[in-house]
């Protein structure tokens, strides 16, 4: 399956960049100017460490969705069917990586679709879309 992956040695967590990845995701994927709407989050913590919150397409959300609104496409990427989604946010609460997002303005939740827009935007070339084995469905 396709997943967004990060090279933590290259990413500087905003020390010397303008979070171009988040800005590109927000503007090109979600058509808004607010980078906090992005489907990935790169944070510099107070203790100086960096944290990247990325969807690894593990598929836990597919199993817990009560509306059967989430499924893998041919590339193994988990996609949300906006028509079927009922905005219960089980996916948001059950995502261990906190990578399934929601915000107060939008009813429907959203996630990374491994489109690669952020990869192209990253000035440090720290992001890539890589192939990874599709994990077996888990009992959650």
């Amino acid at each position: 399956m396709k997943t967004l992956q990060i090279d933590v040695g290259k990413c500087d967590y905003g020390r010397d960049c303008a979070h171009e990845c988040e800005a590109a995701c927000a503007s090109k994927v979600f058509k808004c100017d607010d980078p906090s709407r992005a489907a990935l989050r790169i944070r510099l913590l107070e203790n100086g460490e960096g944290r990247a919150i990325l969807c690894d397409q593990c598929g836990d959300c597919v199993i817990v969705c009560p509306a059967d609104a989430l499924s893998r496409n041919k590339q193994g990427v988990v996609l949300l069917n906006k028509k079927t989604c009922v905005a219960c946010y089980t996916c948001v609460g059950f995502c261990e990586k906190h990578a399934f997002e929601r915000n107060p303005e939008w009813l429907l939740p959203y996630k990374c679709i491994a489109c690669g827009i952020c990869v192209k935007a990253c000035p440090k070339a720290a992001l890539e879309i890589a192939e990874a084995p599709t994990p077996a469905p888990r009992i959650i």
């Binding site: 199993i63 817990v64 009560p66 509306a67 009922v86 946010y89 089980t90 059950f94």
Partner: peptide, 13 residues
């Protein structure tokens, strides 16, 4: 059966 969603209304996790 595990590995499925068994709420009797949407969102019952």
């Amino acid at each position: 059966t595990q590995r499925t969603s068994d709420g009797c209304w949407y969102g019952c996790s």
